[in-house]
Design a protein around this nucleic acid. Sequence first.
DNA 1: TAATTATTTAAGCAAATACTTAAATACAAT
DNA 2: ATTGTATTTAAGTATTTGCTTAAATAATTA
Lengths: 122, 122
Amino acid sequence: MESCIREYADIDQLRQCKANIEEVQTAIQKLSKALNLAGNEVRLKILYLLNTEKAMCPCDLSDVLEMTVPAISQHLRKLKDVDIIRSEKKGQTIFYSLNNDAAQVIISLLGNISTNEAVLIK
Amino acid sequence: MESCIREYADIDQLRQCKANIEEVQTAIQKLSKALNLAGNEVRLKILYLLNTEKAMCPCDLSDVLEMTVPAISQHLRKLKDVDIIRSEKKGQTIFYSLNNDAAQVIISLLGNISTNEAVLIK
DNA sequence: TAATTATTTAAGCAAATACTTAAATACAAT
DNA sequence: ATTGTATTTAAGTATTTGCTTAAATAATTA
């Protein structure tokens, strides 16, 4: 693209950056995917609830979050598709819970949310 | 909505959840907003670069990320709108850098990305 | 002052998102 | 077997998103 013409553009720095970015490419891609999923108010609430309540069914979540069951179900599917949550069937009820391995990043964000001064976003 | 009819639905638990959610409502809203911004591959790369390079201009970012300048500029604006980043003008160049206060959450996520086993997302 | 460079803004558009409602599936109970 | 409950799936739709290109601003240089 070579859009920089500034003579004081540090060509070496930029080359370094490109190499650097390429190295973390897949890690960033995965992280952004996880953050994108958590970056939805409804889904973050679901994750928050699963973190505090251990396990909940779509029906309960629908109640608590005051949303239709299909809407909840579709969010759950997205989270399950990337293994952030897992499901366990008991009778005709399906209980969802956090998959602690993959949800680690998000759990750490949620952990201190109630007493969180770190969230200074406008 | 009252979609749960299961007799073993713990009504008290659900009421507790609702109260709980209401309490963290604004915190979750803010956090999801931040995560949503970071949950975009291009923006996460920008944040990663700003974290390692201290400050960069749209022009440099355009070079490194191989995207048009307007595309970069629009991402920067979104990040700036919520004060995750700030800008400093030097001549006709505008240098963007992380606003450590508001970017704290994200910085902590990026900090260990290169050696990150925590990101197990598919 | 005119041309160049860095950046933003605006308009347009294709793709993604998040809901809605209706239908399908699966299990349970009568 | 039939009805009822829990859930998912599918189709439709309005909104949002992230780019594109072109034009507008602003600062620098010739």
